[in-house]
């Protein structure tokens, strides 16, 4: 651990990696809380994987892969959200189709791009140690978009997450705010891809918020605690992976996953001591 601290003071790339992890945690805490309470983890997973299609096309055309990722994530969010709003019966099949087709498009375009092998693994599993200044600025910008929108629309997102039918009766344009919420999830997915890659995104999006839900009982506090937990996991994962030279994204996810299991056990132990406390009608 002290080797990590020494290296952190010494190496620029490690400082950037740390900063990237902290920036990603803000989006992860805010939007992860919505994903957990609205139970749209599967939709978020679909958005994350579809991103590969946009990255592949951007690479093939010689454009910035992150830009492609952002466009693809937004398109996927609107497609998947539209599917849910209109064809609810076949929702999971159709999300699966978007998910797989997006990835397939990505693989085809990447295979036609010279020198693809280098990049593919880092898109799939993340490589925060390679994060560039430009990516950091983009991440900060995306965080700002998420923060400002959530601050403006907090009540509306709460209403749409909590009780869509009632929100509709109160004259809230439910479909619009539902799609906006998914677009912010898409933006957050792009943030997190920098850190853990598109396959592991869903874990970092849901685990901190799911742990927070064990201890706090309002959406606002859940967002705050989930952000702090996200920061803790990314920093801890980065530190643990540094000395043995393990993949940082996978280490971060394992730290988060183990913490979730520990939290579940802890909660079970508390509930065991106080019977009835967690019983729900």
């Amino acid at each position: 651990m002290s080797a990590f601290l020494d290296a952190l003071l010494q190496y620029d790339f490690l400082q950037k990696a740390l900063l990237g992890g902290l920036l990603a945690s803000i989006g992860c805490g805010l939007m992860g809380s919505y994903v957990v309470v609205k139970r749209i983890g599967y939709m978020a997973g679909g958005i994350a994987h579809t991103v590969l299609g946009g990255m592949g096309i951007a690479l093939f055309l010689g454009l910035a892969p992150l830009g492609g990722a952002l466009v693809a994530a937004l398109v996927a969010a609107l497609l998947i959200g539209g599917v849910r709003l209109r064809w609810r019966q076949q929702e999971d099949t159709l999300i699966g189709v978007v998910w797989a087709v997006g990835m397939a498009i990505g693989i085809l375009f990447i295979s036609r791009t010279p020198g693809y092998n280098v990049n593919l693994m880092s898109y799939l599993f993340g490589n925060i140690l390679m994060v560039t200044d430009r990516s950091l600025w983009l991440m900060a910008g995306l965080d700002l978009v998420v923060l400002v929108t959530v601050a403006l629309c907090y009540r509306l997102f709460l209403a749409v997450s909590f009780d869509e039918e009632f929100a509709r009766l109160r004259g809230v344009p439910v479909a619009f705010f539902y799609l906006l919420l998914l677009c912010l999830v898409a933006v957050t997915v792009v943030l997190l891809i920098q850190v853990v890659g598109l396959i592991l995104v869903i874990a970092l999006l849901t685990l901190p918020a799911a742990i927070a839900a064990h201890y706090v009982h309002s959406l606002g506090r859940m967002m705050l605690l989930a952000t702090l937990l996200g920061m803790l996991f990314t920093v801890a994962g980065l530190a643990l992976s540094y000395e043995p030279d393990l993949p940082s994204g996978a280490t971060i996810i394992l730290v988060a996953g183990c913490s979730y299991v520990l939290s579940l056990l802890l909660r079970g132990a508390i509930a065991g001591r106080r019977p009835g406390r967690w019983r729900r009608a």
Partner: peptide, 24 residues
């Protein structure tokens, strides 16, 4: 409504729930 169209375990307290009626 006859059946609540929300999840009972949603992290929300009574006051926040009633405030939803002020939407719109």
């Amino acid at each position: 409504a006859q059946y609540p169209s929300f999840r009972r375990d949603f992290p929300i307290d009574v006051e926040q729930t009633v405030l939803m009626g002020r939407l719109g």
